[in-house]
């Protein structure tokens, strides 16, 4: 398949742009999120939440 075949018909061209826009945002978002969460694993709020929330009041008293 040649890239130039995308430009020969306007309908194919327009469809390519729209499909590209729709799928790119989803793939980009999910991809970047996965990378970010892998890169920062162990440091994210969802990972450390248990540490802060399980003690509740006791932890706060210790800090103060």
């Amino acid at each position: 398949m040649q890239i130039s075949s995308l430009f020969k018909r306007n309908s194919v061209y327009v469809a390519t742009i729209l499909v590209g826009a729709f799928s790119f945002q989803a793939f980009f978002d999910v991809g970047v999120n996965r990378w970010y969460e892998y890169h920062n694993r162990g440091k994210l709020w969802k990972d450390v939440k248990g540490k802060f929330l399980e003690g509740g009041d006791e932890d706060e008293d210790d800090d103060e």
């Binding site: 018909r9 309908s11 194919v12 327009v14 469809a15 729209l18 499909v19 729709f22």
Partner: peptide, 8 residues
Amino acid sequence: LWGGAVGA
């Protein structure tokens, strides 16, 4: 093809 483009 235009139908596909409209769907997209």
